[in-house]
């Protein structure tokens, strides 16, 4: 029973990491920027979700509200900050890192702003269903209706995303702009807008990750929430495991990470909570620096 429990918890947490990793990958593919503000943007979106839950009383309305809010914030950040930085720092030693450092600054700005608007105290988001574990043969699992719902929702969202990427013209434009921006432009694609769209999708994915991370945890939200720091680190590690360039890699990277953490905590020591992800990251970087799905092979999706 322990094994099943550990497996299910790992997959649920992993699916949230996958979403976060997807948002990192989407941003990386559109603008070649590692976005340290991704968790900050997810935090802000989750506050939007909190406002919607509080006012409208439904988690299922709040989730799309958070997604739209997250998409808008991300699109604005790309249009105002990243586009200018990439354009103006096109040469010199700091060219490559300027946008990345800017996202670190942005993370601070977003955290400070949320704390100014919503205060430093915890606020609560109530999940749509119970987080009390299922009982099988008298044993109570940690796996709950909420976790099942999270898993299913993430699955559906990923299915939609992959359909959009594989079957629509917008998906084709997103992929072509990521792989060969010049050929995309010569084919008539307005690559600047496609980049903004990539950021917007990333913002929406991050918002879902933020909402689920909050309700899957203890349900509380605060500007300096440890859950969100963890989300950033885990999302980044999952993205790196997957090769940073591949959406399928991000999904698998998230699940692998979730499962590994879950099993390490269960069978080795629960004291390794903060160390395990970094050890896993180091192992991946040493053994397969290009990620499991690294290099061009996985750039299909």
């Amino acid at each position: 029973m322990d094994f099943l429990n550990t497996l299910l918890i790992g997959i649920t947490a992993g699916s949230i990491y996958s979403l976060m990793a997807i948002s990192m990958v989407l941003v990386w593919r559109s603008t070649r920027v590692v976005n340290f503000a991704q968790a900050g943007m997810a935090l802000l979106s989750t506050y939007f979700g909190f406002e919607a839950v509080t006012r409208l009383g439904s988690f299922w309305i709040a989730l799309p509200v958070a997604m739209v809010g997250g998409a808008l914030v991300a699109a604005l950040v790309e249009m105002i900050l990243i586009r200018l930085l990439v354009k103006h720092s096109s040469s010199g030693p700091i060219a490559g890192v300027a946008p990345i450092i800017a996202t670190l600054g942005l993370l601070g700005v977003i955290r400070a702003s949320t704390s100014m608007i919503w205060g430093g105290q915890d606020v609560r988001i109530v999940g749509p269903v119970s987080n009390d574990g299922y009982t099988i043969n008298g044993t109570t699992l940690v796996f709950s209706p909420l976790k099942l719902l999270i898993l299913l929702t993430v699955l559906v969202l990923m299915l939609i995303l992959s359909l959009v990427f594989q079957k629509t013209n917008i998906g084709l434009a997103l992929r072509a702009s990521a792989y060969s921006p010049e050929i995309a432009r010569l084919s008539g694609i307005k690559v600047d807008w496609v980049r903004t769209l990539g950021w917007a999708l990333a913002g929406a994915a991050g918002a879902v990750a933020g909402m689920f991370q909050t309700v899957n945890g203890n349900g509380t939200l605060s500007p300096d929430s440890i859950e969100f720091s963890l989300l950033l680190v885990s999302g980044f590690i999952a993205a790196v495991i997957g090769g940073l360039d591949s959406l399928i890699g991000a999904v698998i990277g998230g699940l692998v990470l979730g499962l590994m953490i879950s099993f390490v905590l269960m069978y080795i020591s629960s004291g390794l909570f903060f160390i395990a992800p970094f050890v896993i990251l180091l192992l991946v970087l040493f053994i397969r620096p290009q990620g499991i799905f690294g290099a061009k092979a996985a750039r299909r999706a």
């Binding site: 013209n169 084709l172 992929r175 792989y179 010569l186 694609i189």
Partner: peptide, 29 residues
């Protein structure tokens, strides 16, 4: 239309997708 130096195709896309790319701005499937 400009065909760039060195076989200007997107290697990660299929032949069909590369072709579709050329007509994508028309938005007429």
């Amino acid at each position: 239309s400009h065909v760039g130096e060195g076989k200007s195709v997107v290697p990660e896309l299929t032949v069909k997708e590369n072709l579709e790319l050329g007509a994508i701005w028309r938005r007429n499937n």
